Computed example of a mutant assay.
Amino acid sequence: MKLISIPANPVPDDAIVGAIKTPDQVELRFVRFAPPAGRKGTVCLFQGRAEFIEKYFETVRDLRARGFAVATFDWRGQGLSQHMLSDRRKGHVKSFREYEIDLETFMREVVLPDCPPPFYALGHSMGASVLIRIANRGLRWFDRMVLCAPLIDLGPKNATPFARPVVRWLNVFGAGTSYVPGGSSTVVASQPFIGNVLTSDPVRHARTAAILEAEPELGLGSPTNAWAAAAFSMMRDFENGSYTKSIRQPILMIGASRDETVSTPAIEAFGGRLRAGSHLIIGGARHEMMMETDRYRGQLLAAFDAFVPGTPAYA
């Protein structure tokens, strides 16, 4: 396994990269960064859909400068982990339970044996949603979780009234591995800066595009109907008012006021129901807050600093 390094985005120091295999025989690429002096524990980074390890090198440096070791991996079907279909551009799973298997394997094979405790989670979008799912199941590896723009529901631009029944019908009747209606193999992060809904920072947007130019296999296009059906099933679970009752994990949810990808009002509503959680909204920010301009990214890091590290879960 390798990490892609370019002049604008070099690999952070002390990286150990490798591969692990899940119980269902999917190979995942992981990397862990050794703890700096005066270590405070380990932050585990969990990416969103269509993302990859290299995109978070800047965030890795920020976390290590704060005294944390860092560990992360590519979800199945993303980055340089094993893809589920012959067409690598299709983002595909049959159930989000598959992502939970990835996360559990990563924790047991990489983090628990080789990374210094205590453990904290920093998740974005889809990755943040998977963290919510494991918290609902009562898995307590992390003292605290910071969830950026979690996928609780789609933003108004994506939440058309017919989307759910259409993808469900297509999935049931054999088109599960096809792109969602209107989807294509066009790489999400390679689209022009003008008109993008992910970040208002042209430099960080260009950096991601440069990484993809250096290694095209990191790119991912639209999701499949099966992926979308699985996502809608998860969102339906989140709508249940009783879903948060079993979550006792300390969680900070951070939304972006200009997010068009996921629903910020849904994040606020879900965050308000958490027993041990809170939420805040960063005004003016777009969906990818860790890739935003310093003005918004600084607010995110300040919120992280205020919340992590906190009181250990098992003092």
Rank of each mutant, 00 (worst) to 15 (best):
Glu260Gly: 05
Val11Met: 07
Ile194Gln: 15
Ala229Ile: 01
Ala121Gly: 05
Gly123Cys: 13
Ala229Gln: 04
Arg297His: 10
Val43Phe: 11
Leu131Phe: 12
Glu109His: 07
Asp102Ser: 02
Ser278Lys: 10
Gly77Glu: 03
Ile194Asp: 15
Trp141Gln: 07
Phe193Ile: 05
Gly221Ile: 06
Val31Gly: 02
Ser200Ala: 11
Asp305Gly: 08
Glu288Pro: 00
Asn196Gln: 08
Gly18Met: 12
Phe304Ser: 04
Gln25Tyr: 13
Phe162Ser: 13
Arg133Trp: 10
Phe46Gly: 03
Asp102Glu: 08
Asn9Glu: 01
Ile267Ala: 08
Glu109Ser: 10
Thr22Met: 15
Thr105Pro: 03
Gly67Met: 07
Glu213Met: 12
Asp114Glu: 14
Pro23Cys: 08
Ala266Gln: 05
Phe68Ile: 05
Arg275Cys: 11
Gly155Trp: 06
Asp201Val: 00
Ile20Cys: 05
Val17Lys: 02
Asp62Gly: 02
Val308Cys: 15
Asp13Met: 09
Phe162Arg: 03
Ser246Arg: 13
Gly195Phe: 11
Ile4Leu: 11
Ala214Lys: 10
Arg137Ile: 01
Leu147Met: 13
Ala15Trp: 05
Met290Tyr: 13
Arg32Ile: 06
Ala159Gly: 02
Asn225Trp: 08
Ile282His: 01
Thr42Phe: 12
Met126His: 14
Ser222Lys: 03
Ser246Thr: 09
Thr199Ser: 15
Ser190Lys: 15
Glu292Asn: 04
Pro7Met: 08
Gln25Asp: 11
Arg275Asn: 10
Pro10Tyr: 02
Ile20Tyr: 11
His124Gln: 13
Asp201Ile: 00
Ala50Asn: 12
Lys245Val: 03
Ser86Asp: 10
